[in-house]
Design a protein around this nucleic acid. Structure first.
Length: 424
DNA sequence: TCTGGGGTCCTAGGACCC
DNA sequence: TCTGGGGTCCTAGGACCC
């Protein structure tokens, strides 16, 4: 018997999280924005109906927001992360075999010997329990491969009759589901491949399933071929119970204002490096190299330039000052005078677990001191807020991310605690 | 004026080495 | 004049996911 997967997908997750704590928001058009007040990254059904697309730049819909009284939220990742953990815990009530695929999605292994009807009932049970325990509405897709389970969930969201659950395992409806799904909506088919497939007259998931292997291999590499196999019911993507160890840690930002001097660029990159180093120590990993990159604004007509540099660390280290020095070496290699820069970032790569990291034999006493210093800084920042203790790498911060419409940080900043005005 | 951030994997060409 | 094959590393770019 082939395995059976369920995909549990939280509906409009960030919006649903906001609604759990604020009944007033039910039935309202709501959008949640990305960092930098950039794009729309979550929408309520009502907002979707207003024609607000995923990824729409916020400044394109300022009028709509006013005239239709759309509620706007900045991302509140502390809240979403916590709600996500509650949903995942609830799913573990059904099986220990849960793969947390993203903040709002999980794959589960289901028993292999149920009937079509029993799978649908089990799906409904999952929905009901998650709703009751966490307040989050979810959709469930069930099938014999992950790709088909994703597709089933997609069909469930579109069909009112499905009531949030579609099962394609041991089911006679697979062909119909493939027929009614566009090729571009298949998991693993992005914009480029969708366009290419359209040119070849492959517009449905069914047509994609039946495309010749060799042609798919040539046009879409082994990755695309795997997707096609999965559509045919051959499982190629197993469940991953424990997340594979991270291979890189990135911190990058678009600048609130363009950066035009090496000094400003060094300052920004220093901050990114310090943040990346914090993440690194929390994950108990050590990098063997570091990549810095910078780029101009791809949206405007000014001369374009983008580059990156790899800096190898003679000794793997998680010591922030050492990493900042390395990042500066990198940035000096690629920085070219005369451009206005819009974005930069730091990637820590070739990560290995702290426990197995090579340390420099002659540096052991220093390594110990460095480690306890970093530990102390991280602790202070965890307790008193990010950035309480910082590295003296410049304080101008002209590059800093824009956040003009930020909601108060109620739970993480003393100055922004919720205040109640008693109406007497 | 204003277009996110953090990841993974694959491919391909050139340099260099044996 | 003839002139292979396999490996690694680097860089760059492209594709995808949430």
């Amino acid at each position: 018997m082939s395995p059976v997967f369920a995909l549990v997908d939280c509906n409009n997750f960030y919006v649903s999280c906001e609604r759990v704590f604020c009944a007033r928001l039910l039935k309202r058009a709501i959008v949640v924005l990305s960092n930098n007040d950039g794009c729309v990254i979550a929408r309520s059904e009502e907002a979707k109906q207003l024609g607000i697309g995923m990824g729409t730049p916020a400044f394109h819909i300022t009028r709509l927001i006013e005239t239709k009284e759309v509620e706007v939220f900045s991302s509140n990742y502390a809240l979403y992360g916590d709600m996500s953990a509650r949903v995942m815990e609830t799913l573990r009530e059904f099986t220990p075999e849960v793969e947390i695929y993203s903040i709002d999605e999980a794959f589960l292994h289901l028993p292999e010997d149920l009937s079509n009807e029993e799978y649908v009932n089990l799906g409904q049970e999952i929905r009901a329990k998650v709703r009751k325990w966490t307040g989050i509405p979810v959709t469930v897709g069930i099938a014999e491969t992950k790709t088909l389970a994703k597709l089933a969930a997609r069909v469930a969201k579109k069909s009112e009759r499905a009531a949030g659950v579609v099962n394609l395992a041991r089911s006679p409806h697979v062909e119909r589901a493939l027929q009614m799904t566009n090729a571009e909506d298949v998991w693993g088919i992005g914009r480029q491949h969708a366009r290419m497939l359209k040119g070849a007259n492959i517009t449905t998931a069914l047509a994609l399933r039946d495309a010749p292997d060799k042609w798919i291999r040539r046009r879409m590499s082994v990755v695309g071929l795997r997707t096609v196999f999965e559509l045919r019911g051959t499982s190629c993507l197993p469940l991953e119970f424990c997340p594979p160890p991270k291979k890189s840690i990135t911190v990058s930002r678009s600048f609130g204002r363009h950066v035009e001097t090496l000094a400003d660029m060094r300052e920004a990159v220093s901050h990114f490096t310090a943040r990346a180093a914090e993440k690194l120590r929390r994950a108990e990993l050590i990098p063997q190299a570091l990549v810095v990159f910078l780029s101009t604004n791809k949206w405007n007509d000014a001369p374009q330039y983008a580059s990156s540099a790899v800096v190898h660390l003679p000794v793997a280290t998680d010591y922030t000052p050492e990493l900042i020095r390395a990042a500066h070496r990198g940035i000096e290699r690629i920085y070219v005078e005369g451009y206005t820069y819009k974005k930069a970032g730091v990637v820590l790569v070739d990560l290995v677990p702290v426990a197995t990291a090579q340390c420099n034999f002659f540096d052991i006493p220093d390594t110990e001191r460095a480690r306890s210093l970093m530990g102390a800084i991280d602790k202070v920042n965890a307790q008193f807020g990010r950035g309480t203790l910082r590295f003296a790498a410049g304080f101008k911060q002209g590059w800093k991310t824009r956040a003009e419409h930020r909601q108060p940080r109620y739970t993480t900043h003393w100055g922004e605690l919720l205040t109640l005005n008693a109406a007497i």
